[in-house]
């Protein structure tokens, strides 16, 4: 499964970056969301996979018998997911406001703030 998921993750990265290279603001956000999925899954997979053995300590026991899924990446991913959610929500509202301000979804039109003045 690692190999298959590695391909999936590669595809997620590729798709995420591809979407970020488009001119539409909505696609930009989609790209960011995809990159979020991608990095979460990457952390999950590179920490090795264990099928169906969640890291729960059985009642009355002191520890968990191997094999069980590594809890550390799970905790990290959880944090990353939540942070990603906060950022995603912010991004959505930002894009909406930017759209209202520029009145265009085309990112190539969002250039007022950074080109040098060639007439100088």
């Amino acid at each position: 499964m690692e190999v298959a998921l590695a391909i999936v993750i590669g595809a997620l990265y590729a798709a995420g970056l591809y979407m970020m290279l488009r001119r539409s603001m909505v696609k930009l956000i989609a790209g960011l969301v995809l990159l979020g999925y991608a990095s979460n899954l990457l952390i999950f997979v590179v920490s090795r996979l264990t099928r169906a053995r969640p890291p729960l300590v059985p009642e009355g026991a002191q520890g968990i018998a191997e094999p069980f899924a590594d809890p550390v990446p799970q905790a990290l991913i959880l944090t990353a997911i939540v942070i990603g959610f906060g950022l995603q929500a912010f991004a959505l509202v930002l894009v909406r406001r930017a759209y209202q301000a520029v009145n265009n979804d085309d990112l190539d039109q969002v250039t007022a703030s950074d080109r040098p003045d060639l007439q100088q």
Partner: peptide, 30 residues
Amino acid sequence: LTGLAGAVITLMILIITDLPLVSPLKTWFA
């Protein structure tokens, strides 16, 4: 370009998951 990027990531995962991993954290936390 992005296809290349994806391929790099896939390759990295494959290489790293092929190496042995001893995670002291996993055992200790459990």
